[in-house]
């Protein structure tokens, strides 16, 4: 049985770019531990010689023609952007 610690949850949350409080981390640790323990049921099965399924249909290399197509007009693309200037998206400071 895997034990999920508060520290592990904080680490995973950071990887997923989620800010969580210590209190939330404890709560999620309990829930995620119960869920991952339930998932260990899969270890009953011997899957040594089983191929993984990534996709159910036999599709390979679906490609379009190498031809340029027009993109969306810039003002349309900016329609849902909260802050923009001169056709560019404004973001917080990246480098100090």
């Amino acid at each position: 049985m895997a034990k999920m610690t508060k520290e592990e949850v904080i680490e995973v949350a950071h990887l997923a770019r989620l800010a969580i409080t210590d209190e939330e981390a404890v709560h999620f640790a309990d829930q995620l531990e119960a869920i991952t323990n339930a998932m260990e049921l899969l270890n009953e099965l011997d899957t040594e010689n089983v191929e993984p399924t990534t996709h159910v249909l036999p599709l390979v290399n679906v490609m379009r023609k190498d031809k340029s197509i027009e993109g969306l007009p810039r003002e349309m693309v900016m329609k849902n952007v909260k802050e923009h200037e001169g056709g560019q998206v404004r973001v917080p400071t990246i480098l100090d």
């Binding site: 998932m39 899969l42 270890n43 099965l45 899957t47 089983v50 191929e51 993984p52 399924t53 990534t54 159910v56």
Partner: peptide
């Protein structure tokens, strides 16, 4: 592991 079990279920 889950991808392999997916194969068995399929």
């Amino acid at each position: 592991k889950a991808q392999k079990v997916r194969t068995l279920i399929k």
